[in-house]
Amino acid sequence: MKKILVIEDDESIRRSVGMMLRISGFEAFYAENGSIGLQMATQSMPDVIICDIAMPVMDGYSFITELRKNPATSKIPVIFLTAKASDEDQAKGKAMGANAYLTKPIWPADLMKTVQEQLGGAA
């Protein structure tokens, strides 16, 4: 079973995404900020990470920077799922090393499609 890490400070979204992943046959982990997310990523080595950008304690940018520094986790695909929707934000996200950039609000089907793509690419 593929493991997906969801890093999201909004509990409601975190739970929805998690529920959707579980139903679709994935194992979902949760973290409410980048700092916790980084620990979990190192411990459980997820196949894909879905990560918000604006979060307390450690934001998505810092998280991906740290993640890429660690050779063990540097190759894990990261999908940014964020309310930052401007072109500049998207460009920045990609430049930081995100494999996909999705803006809120999003249809679950689109999110799942992107997750599948990242899994296929990683496989």
Partner: peptide, 20 residues
């Protein structure tokens, strides 16, 4: 930003209810 977050939540829930 403030509208995107609850809208995402709504959209995800609606999507889950619809598809699953």
């Amino acid at each position: 930003h403030e509208f995107r977050t609850p809208l995402t939540s709504i959209l995800l829930s609606v999507g889950i209810l619809k598809d699953f």
